[in-house]
Protein backbone atom coordinates (compact mmCIF):
# COMPACT_ATOMS: atom_id res chain seq x y z
CA UNK A 1 0.00 0.00 0.00
CA UNK A 2 1.52 3.25 -1.11
CA UNK A 3 0.37 6.48 0.43
CA UNK A 4 0.96 9.94 -0.93
CA UNK A 5 0.95 12.35 1.96
CA UNK A 6 1.59 15.98 2.55
CA UNK A 7 4.08 16.17 5.34
CA UNK A 8 6.23 19.14 6.16
CA UNK A 9 8.96 19.14 8.71
CA UNK A 10 7.77 21.83 11.08
CA UNK A 11 7.24 19.96 14.36
CA UNK A 12 3.71 20.25 15.73
CA UNK A 13 4.73 18.54 18.93
CA UNK A 14 8.12 19.01 20.49
CA UNK A 15 8.90 17.20 23.70
CA UNK A 16 12.23 17.94 25.38
CA UNK A 17 13.76 16.26 28.42
CA UNK A 18 10.38 15.14 29.71
CA UNK A 19 10.38 13.52 33.15
CA UNK A 20 7.51 12.27 35.22
CA UNK A 21 7.20 10.45 38.51
CA UNK A 22 4.31 8.65 40.20
CA UNK A 23 5.40 9.18 43.78
CA UNK A 24 8.91 7.71 43.81
CA UNK A 25 8.39 5.74 40.62
CA UNK A 26 10.15 7.30 37.65
CA UNK A 27 7.70 6.58 34.78
CA UNK A 28 9.14 8.81 32.05
CA UNK A 29 12.88 9.35 31.79
CA UNK A 30 14.33 12.12 29.63
CA UNK A 31 11.94 11.72 26.75
CA UNK A 32 12.80 13.72 23.63
CA UNK A 33 10.46 13.55 20.69
CA UNK A 34 9.48 15.76 17.79
CA UNK A 35 6.45 15.05 15.68
CA UNK A 36 6.18 16.63 12.26
CA UNK A 37 2.95 17.95 10.84
CA UNK A 38 1.03 15.08 9.26
CA UNK A 39 3.32 12.42 10.67
CA UNK A 40 1.93 9.10 11.91
CA UNK A 41 3.81 7.68 14.86
CA UNK A 42 3.23 4.31 16.45
CA UNK A 43 4.48 3.74 19.96
CA UNK A 44 4.91 0.17 21.14
CA UNK A 45 6.49 -1.51 24.10
CA UNK A 46 5.70 -3.81 27.00
CA UNK A 47 3.01 -2.81 29.49
CA UNK A 48 4.27 -0.46 32.15
CA UNK A 49 6.82 1.04 29.80
CA UNK A 50 5.22 4.50 30.01
CA UNK A 51 3.82 4.72 26.48
CA UNK A 52 0.26 5.59 27.55
CA UNK A 53 1.58 7.99 30.15
CA UNK A 54 3.63 9.73 27.48
CA UNK A 55 0.72 10.44 25.16
CA UNK A 56 -1.52 11.34 28.09
CA UNK A 57 1.00 14.04 28.97
CA UNK A 58 0.57 15.61 25.55
CA UNK A 59 -2.97 16.80 26.32
CA UNK A 60 -2.30 17.19 30.02
CA UNK A 61 -4.48 14.36 31.26
CA UNK A 62 -1.30 13.56 33.15
CA UNK A 63 0.92 16.30 34.51
CA UNK A 64 4.67 16.16 33.91
CA UNK A 65 7.18 17.35 36.46
CA UNK A 66 10.21 18.30 34.39
CA UNK A 67 10.97 19.17 30.79
CA UNK A 68 8.78 20.91 28.25
CA UNK A 69 6.02 19.90 25.89
CA UNK A 70 5.16 22.29 23.12
CA UNK A 71 2.12 21.72 20.94
CA UNK A 72 2.00 24.03 17.93
CA UNK A 73 4.39 26.36 19.73
CA UNK A 74 2.24 26.57 22.88
CA UNK A 75 3.98 25.32 25.96
CA UNK A 76 1.97 23.12 28.32
CA UNK A 77 1.87 24.76 31.72
CA UNK A 78 -0.58 24.68 34.57
CA UNK A 79 -2.47 27.68 33.25
CA UNK A 80 -6.04 26.59 32.55
CA UNK A 81 -6.25 28.75 29.45
CA UNK A 82 -3.16 27.12 28.04
CA UNK A 83 -4.44 23.61 28.70
CA UNK A 84 -7.80 24.46 27.14
CA UNK A 85 -6.02 25.85 24.06
CA UNK A 86 -3.98 22.69 23.60
CA UNK A 87 -6.92 20.37 24.21
CA UNK A 88 -8.76 22.12 21.42
CA UNK A 89 -6.00 21.12 18.99
CA UNK A 90 -5.46 17.60 20.31
CA UNK A 91 -8.11 14.89 20.12
CA UNK A 92 -7.87 11.65 22.00
CA UNK A 93 -9.31 8.15 21.64
CA UNK A 94 -9.18 5.87 24.66
CA UNK A 95 -8.80 2.16 25.17
CA UNK A 96 -12.20 1.90 26.89
CA UNK A 97 -13.98 4.24 24.41
CA UNK A 98 -15.35 6.38 27.28
CA UNK A 99 -18.41 7.51 25.40
CA UNK A 100 -20.95 9.33 27.56
CA UNK A 101 -23.51 6.59 28.26
CA UNK A 102 -26.38 8.96 29.13
CA UNK A 103 -26.22 10.76 25.79
CA UNK A 104 -27.19 9.51 22.34
CA UNK A 105 -24.47 8.98 19.76
CA UNK A 106 -25.40 12.29 18.15
CA UNK A 107 -25.33 14.11 21.49
CA UNK A 108 -21.96 12.54 22.30
CA UNK A 109 -20.64 14.13 19.13
CA UNK A 110 -22.27 17.54 19.44
CA UNK A 111 -21.57 18.21 23.14
CA UNK A 112 -18.06 19.59 22.76
CA UNK A 113 -18.62 21.49 19.47
CA UNK A 114 -21.64 23.22 21.06
CA UNK A 115 -20.03 24.16 24.35
CA UNK A 116 -16.33 24.50 23.51
CA UNK A 117 -16.48 25.74 19.94
CA UNK A 118 -19.77 27.56 20.62
CA UNK A 119 -21.39 26.19 17.48
CA UNK A 120 -25.13 26.33 17.03
CA UNK A 121 -26.91 23.05 17.62
CA UNK A 122 -27.75 22.76 13.96
CA UNK A 123 -24.19 23.35 12.74
CA UNK A 124 -22.87 20.87 15.27
CA UNK A 125 -25.38 18.25 14.17
CA UNK A 126 -24.50 18.67 10.51
CA UNK A 127 -20.84 18.29 11.40
CA UNK A 128 -21.55 15.28 13.58
CA UNK A 129 -23.49 13.55 10.82
CA UNK A 130 -20.62 14.14 8.40
CA UNK A 131 -18.18 12.46 10.76
CA UNK A 132 -20.58 9.62 11.52
CA UNK A 133 -20.82 9.07 7.80
CA UNK A 134 -17.05 8.90 7.69
CA UNK A 135 -16.99 6.05 10.22
CA UNK A 136 -20.07 4.49 8.58
CA UNK A 137 -22.38 4.82 11.56
CA UNK A 138 -24.83 7.43 10.33
CA UNK A 139 -27.81 5.20 11.03
CA UNK A 140 -26.77 4.77 14.69
CA UNK A 141 -27.09 8.48 15.54
CA UNK A 142 -30.23 8.25 17.73
CA UNK A 143 -29.03 5.22 19.70
CA UNK A 144 -27.24 5.14 23.04
CA UNK A 145 -23.65 3.88 23.37
CA UNK A 146 -24.82 0.82 25.32
CA UNK A 147 -26.73 -0.38 22.27
CA UNK A 148 -23.63 -0.49 20.06
CA UNK A 149 -20.92 -3.11 19.73
CA UNK A 150 -17.41 -2.36 20.98
CA UNK A 151 -16.10 -1.72 17.50
CA UNK A 152 -18.96 0.65 16.73
CA UNK A 153 -18.43 2.46 20.03
CA UNK A 154 -14.77 2.96 19.29
CA UNK A 155 -15.59 4.31 15.84
CA UNK A 156 -18.05 6.73 17.47
CA UNK A 157 -15.27 7.76 19.85
CA UNK A 158 -13.06 8.51 16.86
CA UNK A 159 -15.84 10.52 15.22
CA UNK A 160 -16.37 12.37 18.51
CA UNK A 161 -12.72 13.39 18.59
CA UNK A 162 -12.86 14.43 14.92
CA UNK A 163 -15.84 16.72 15.54
CA UNK A 164 -13.52 19.09 17.40
CA UNK A 165 -11.50 19.28 14.20
CA UNK A 166 -8.18 18.54 15.91
CA UNK A 167 -4.86 18.76 14.10
CA UNK A 168 -3.43 16.03 16.25
CA UNK A 169 -5.05 12.75 17.27
CA UNK A 170 -3.80 10.59 20.11
CA UNK A 171 -4.82 6.93 20.23
CA UNK A 172 -4.31 5.10 23.50
CA UNK A 173 -4.48 1.39 22.62
CA UNK A 174 -7.66 1.86 20.58
CA UNK A 175 -8.18 -1.82 19.85
CA UNK A 176 -7.03 -3.47 23.08
CA UNK A 177 -10.52 -3.72 24.58
CA UNK A 178 -12.11 -5.11 21.41
CA UNK A 179 -13.11 -8.59 20.38
CA UNK A 180 -10.88 -9.89 17.58
CA UNK A 181 -13.77 -9.69 15.10
CA UNK A 182 -14.04 -5.92 15.62
CA UNK A 183 -10.43 -4.84 15.53
CA UNK A 184 -10.30 -4.54 11.77
CA UNK A 185 -13.21 -2.11 11.42
CA UNK A 186 -11.54 0.27 13.86
CA UNK A 187 -8.09 -0.04 12.33
CA UNK A 188 -9.59 0.62 8.88
CA UNK A 189 -10.98 3.93 10.11
CA UNK A 190 -7.63 4.92 11.65
CA UNK A 191 -5.81 3.87 8.48
CA UNK A 192 -8.14 6.04 6.44
CA UNK A 193 -7.46 9.03 8.72
CA UNK A 194 -3.73 8.45 8.49
CA UNK A 195 -4.06 8.78 4.73
CA UNK A 196 -5.78 12.14 5.14
CA UNK A 197 -2.85 13.89 6.73
CA UNK A 198 -3.89 14.22 10.37
CA UNK A 199 -0.94 14.08 12.73
CA UNK A 200 -1.33 10.92 14.78
CA UNK A 201 0.37 9.25 17.70
CA UNK A 202 -0.93 5.77 18.29
CA UNK A 203 -0.07 3.43 21.12
CA UNK A 204 -0.86 -0.07 19.90
CA UNK A 205 0.16 -3.71 19.89
CA UNK A 206 -1.13 -4.21 16.34
CA UNK A 207 2.20 -4.66 14.62
CA UNK A 208 0.78 -5.36 11.18
CA UNK A 209 -1.09 -2.08 11.37
CA UNK A 210 2.03 -0.27 12.59
CA UNK A 211 4.03 -1.56 9.71
CA UNK A 212 1.44 -0.42 7.16
CA UNK A 213 0.51 2.95 8.52
CA UNK A 214 3.35 4.38 10.60
CA UNK A 215 5.90 6.86 9.31
CA UNK A 216 7.96 6.16 12.40
CA UNK A 217 7.80 3.44 15.04
CA UNK A 218 8.97 4.11 18.57
CA UNK A 219 9.81 1.39 21.05
CA UNK A 220 9.66 2.25 24.74
CA UNK A 221 10.80 0.30 27.76
CA UNK A 222 11.13 1.29 31.42
CA UNK A 223 10.07 4.86 30.73
CA UNK A 224 12.64 5.50 28.01
CA UNK A 225 12.56 5.64 24.25
CA UNK A 226 14.80 2.73 23.35
CA UNK A 227 14.57 2.83 19.61
CA UNK A 228 12.88 4.83 16.89
CA UNK A 229 13.00 4.12 13.21
CA UNK A 230 10.98 3.85 10.04
CA UNK A 231 8.76 0.78 10.15
CA UNK A 232 10.68 -1.21 7.58
CA UNK A 233 14.01 -0.92 9.40
CA UNK A 234 12.34 -1.21 12.77
CA UNK A 235 10.74 -4.55 12.04
CA UNK A 236 13.45 -6.09 9.90
CA UNK A 237 16.65 -4.71 11.48
CA UNK A 238 16.06 -3.63 15.05
CA UNK A 239 19.14 -1.93 16.51
CA UNK A 240 18.74 -3.00 20.12
CA UNK A 241 18.49 -6.45 21.68
CA UNK A 242 15.59 -5.26 23.83
CA UNK A 243 13.59 -4.35 20.73
CA UNK A 244 14.32 -7.65 19.11
CA UNK A 245 13.31 -9.57 22.21
CA UNK A 246 10.02 -7.63 22.32
CA UNK A 247 9.29 -8.16 18.66
CA UNK A 248 10.06 -11.86 18.83
CA UNK A 249 7.50 -12.20 21.63
CA UNK A 250 4.74 -10.23 20.01
CA UNK A 251 4.91 -11.26 16.38
Amino acid sequence: MVMEKKMDNTPVIRITDLNKWYGNFHVLKNINLSVANGEVIVICGPSGSGKSTLIRCINRIEEHQAGTIRVKGMELTNRMKNIAGIRREVGMVFQSFDLFPHLTILENLTLAPCWVRKMSKKEAETLAMEHLERVQLKDQAPKYPGQLSGGQQQRVAIARALCMNPEILLFDEPTSALDPEMIKEVLDVIRQLAGEGITMICVTHEMGFARQVADRVIFMDSGEIVEENDPETFFTHPQWDRTEAFLSQII
Binding site: N59, I61, M80, A84, R87, R88, V90, G91, M92, F94, S96, D98, L99, F100, P101, H102, L111, A112, W115, V116, A157, R160, A161, M164
Partner: peptide, 27 residues
Amino acid sequence: IPVGQFEAAGSLGLNAFQTMVFVVLPQ
Protein backbone atom coordinates in the same frame (compact mmCIF):
# COMPACT_ATOMS: atom_id res chain seq x y z
CA ILE B 1 -18.48 7.63 37.70
CA PRO B 2 -15.34 6.15 36.12
CA VAL B 3 -12.34 8.44 35.81
CA GLY B 4 -12.41 7.83 32.04
CA GLN B 5 -15.51 10.00 31.79
CA PHE B 6 -13.61 12.97 33.26
CA GLU B 7 -10.66 12.29 30.97
CA ALA B 8 -12.82 11.96 27.86
CA ALA B 9 -14.64 15.20 28.67
CA GLY B 10 -11.35 16.96 29.40
CA SER B 11 -9.74 15.73 26.21
CA LEU B 12 -12.65 17.20 24.23
CA GLY B 13 -11.89 20.58 25.77
CA LEU B 14 -14.80 20.76 28.21
CA ASN B 15 -13.83 22.68 31.34
CA ALA B 16 -14.39 21.38 34.86
CA PHE B 17 -17.79 23.05 35.21
CA GLN B 18 -19.08 21.79 31.85
CA THR B 19 -17.77 18.30 32.61
CA MET B 20 -19.66 18.31 35.89
CA VAL B 21 -22.94 19.67 34.50
CA PHE B 22 -23.16 17.79 31.19
CA VAL B 23 -21.25 14.56 31.79
CA VAL B 24 -20.81 13.67 35.44
CA LEU B 25 -23.86 14.92 37.34
CA PRO B 26 -26.51 13.57 34.94
CA GLN B 27 -24.98 10.11 35.27
